[in-house]
Design a protein around this nucleic acid. Structure first.
Length: 109
DNA sequence: TTTCTGACTCGAA
DNA sequence: CTTCGAGCCAGAA
């Protein structure tokens, strides 16, 4: 395996791909799992480069469950549509009952 | 080459 | 209660 050649971005991609169907996580949770709790912004920025990869960026939201990056998708509410398709209820870009669908890599992995 | 900004988060005043 | 600043990495101008 080539982990040393992997940059921070690719490490993020690996974790995001582990997110199970119908679950979501936060940028900070991923960053913390990677050992860089203060690099939550970088995780979000990594999602910016996830375009074209099999990374379910729509399952990654901020710690409030707010779809901060929805406007980076093709449509205006495509991100919400994808999540709702997985059984997650969303109102006004805000995930409802976040505790039930939250998936923490630090605990699950 | 330097500078800036960004899909964040937390703590302090 | 609200507001503000700092820290992290990578890519674009």
């Amino acid at each position: 395996m080539q982990q040393e050649t992997l940059g921070f971005f690719e490490k993020v991609y690996v974790v995001v791909r582990q997110i199970p169907f119908g679950k979501v996580t936060s940028y900070g949770a991923i960053a913390k799992y990677l050992g860089a709790a203060k690099s939550a912004r970088i995780v979000g920025y990594a999602m910016n480069g996830s375009h074209g990869k099999d990374v379910p960026a729509h399952r990654v939201v901020n710690r409030k469950g707010l779809l901060t990056g929805k406007h980076h998708f093709d449509g205006t509410n495509i991100m919400q549509q994808l999540l709702e398709n997985e059984g997650i209820e969303i109102i006004d870009n805000q995930i409802q009952n976040l505790e039930s669908v939250f998936w923490d890599p630090a605990k699950e992995l």
